[in-house]
Design a protein around this nucleic acid. Structure first.
Lengths: 329, 329
DNA sequence: CTGTTAGCGCCTTCAG
DNA sequence: CTGAAGGCGCTAACAG
């Protein structure tokens, strides 16, 4: 293995000088910088990240915490988008991202978790899919031991930032669009989970609709399950004019149920996953750019690691209409 | 941060002794071992993996190479299964897994890639989704610079092992089952990609059917695309008795096309992803246990890192019939 | 602007 | 069976 020492010798300078140019510090003349860079190229030197981490006490390692959830393809699709965005962005930011599934650490208490993360030299965390039931994680966040970015939950403190879209507005928008050309004002809202932060936000949209437009809404918790959404539709569809769902997967379940009942009611979803194309009819949904959300999360984390304070950020979304053709690329 | 030194002091022994019990070496008396372990617990010590890696020159880091492929949920589902299995298993084996997407390194030539992986202190690779067109990776494998396990491609050498299911047999089995109660022997086989190793294997099943049963088969390359499978069906379904597809996604496309044509032909897929439930009718498919495949890959890699030679391994599969209810959990 | 010199935390011979 | 000592490759003051 060829080391910084070899480079120094090759370039005819001191070891620390090499380190400086490698790390982009200033205080090195143009000419020595060139000498060093040439030596690096000539020798095909690549710095040893481990040694660097040990020495600088900065590993640049971050953990991506994903929730796999009960097996379903929609969740997989979303997680994959998150991952893809986060990993790429981490690479661009010279951060070293390891991914961890919630279940892998679900047995640990706060102390054990901290100790585990420390032993992995993890400096920062990005938490996807956090909800109010994740008490250990919530504690971890308040402890402020690690710099963390929470995606889709409005939690911040000095070392915690958050990103998400404006769920209340997005949910409002997609329902409004779905109301176009519809008579009636009874909405069956199939919400996600009580413990989900985004679900609470989305429910604000329903409240707002109630007040602003005198909409009559019935709220059922579908727990993000296709099956439960299906059952809700069997039970309440007749008495509703539109069916709004807190997730695309539930929208699929709802649409399938309607088809079996052989009645038509407009349905809207939330998320914008390709899977939705399989619902059977085209539907409105809110498309979240999951990759971008992850990228923003990385940027925020980088800032936190750089010493900035945590803040809440808002990402964009888009209203779209998905149909089977969307699945065909 | 509390170090091995503190533990040594607390336990009243030398640093090296602590190191030994930590790493499970023998040559330490039962009583000192206990003293050390107690000290570790009392202090809540967790070893610093970075220092350990630097010192031992064994990072225990492996890279998981995933191919995201053109956006589709089936691929996401499979990748997520692979990842989930690999990451968990890596954790159990005290390996540190980082995931890398093929596209992130697609611009690099062999040298640059080696240098990149080296700089990340990566010792081993697990490559998912390799095909004959990935020349840089193929070169990397033959160079034997890293211990690597290839999933789903029969490549081995002294430092390369492989795992996959017996595609030829599995494809044969699922087609045979689909032939049950069907008259006729004309099969439309929608294959994956020419450059895919598993596709070649699956095609052997067709050959075998031709010889053994006098089946008349027409082979079309669908490139794993739902759309292409759909088009193939529009063109050739009438002249076929069953339609066998090299992937579930293509099977979905095929089934949808049949429904639009309003004719019925049995269809079978391959993979066993939940997504298949959305095809519209129940279908036979080969269910691969992707998580397990990944776990086996990790085990093999661990062996390779431990000095064993590379070998080819075979994993199991199962024939199943998927229907919409499967999507409902 | 450049070079010298301590460590970072742990592993690993090699004496004792 | 235990302890002392010398690195691993790099960073970061601190002199020069």
């Amino acid at each position: 293995m060829i080391t910084i020492k070899d480079v120094a010798a090759e370039a005819g300078v001191a070891i620390s000088t090499v380190s400086k140019v490698l790390n982009g510090y200033d205080g090195v003349s143009r000419s020595t910088r060139d000498k060093v860079n040439n030596a690096v190229d000539r020798l095909g030197f690549t710095p040893n990240a481990v040694a660097s981490a040990l020495s600088s006490k900065q590993s640049g390692r971050i953990a991506l915490l994903l929730k796999m959830g009960p097996d379903n393809s929609a969740m997989d699709e979303i997680n994959m988008r998150y991952l893809s965005g986060a990993i790429r962005s981490a690479m661009d930011n010279r951060l070293d991202a390891v991914t961890i599934m919630h279940e892998m650490i679900s047995g640990l208490d706060k102390e054990a978790l901290i100790s585990y993360l420390r032993s992995q030299s993890i400096e920062g965390l990005i938490i996807f899919g956090l909800n109010r039931e994740d008490s250990v994680l919530l504690d971890l966040i308040s402890s402020q031991v690690f710099k963390t970015v929470v995606v889709d939950a409005p939690i911040t403190n000095r070392s915690t930032a958050s990103v998400s879209i404006d769920y209340a507005q997005a949910q409002y928008d997609v329902i409004m669009r779905t109301f176009e050309n519809i008579e009636g004002n009874r909405i069956l809202y199939i919400a996600g989970k009580d413990s989900s932060y985004s679900t609470s936000e989305k429910l604000k949209a329903i409240e707002r609709l109630d007040h602003e437009l005198g909409v009559k809404s019935r709220i059922i918790y579908g727990d993000f399950s296709e099956l439960k959404a299906r059952e809700a539709v069997f039970e309440y569809a007749e008495k509703s004019d539109i069916i709004a769902c807190g997730s695309d997967l539930m929208a699929i379940g709802a649409m399938r149920a309607l088809m079996e009942l052989d009645i038509f009611k407009p349905v809207c979803g939330f998320g914008g996953v390709r899977l939705m194309s399989y619902a059977g009819k085209q539907m409105n949904t809110v498309r979240q750019d999951f990759e971008n959300l992850a990228r923003e999360a990385i940027t925020l984390l980088k800032d936190l690691l750089g010493g900035k304070e945590g803040t809440a950020h808002c990402a964009g979304y888009e209203l779209v209409r998905m149909k089977y053709a969307d699945a065909l690329k």
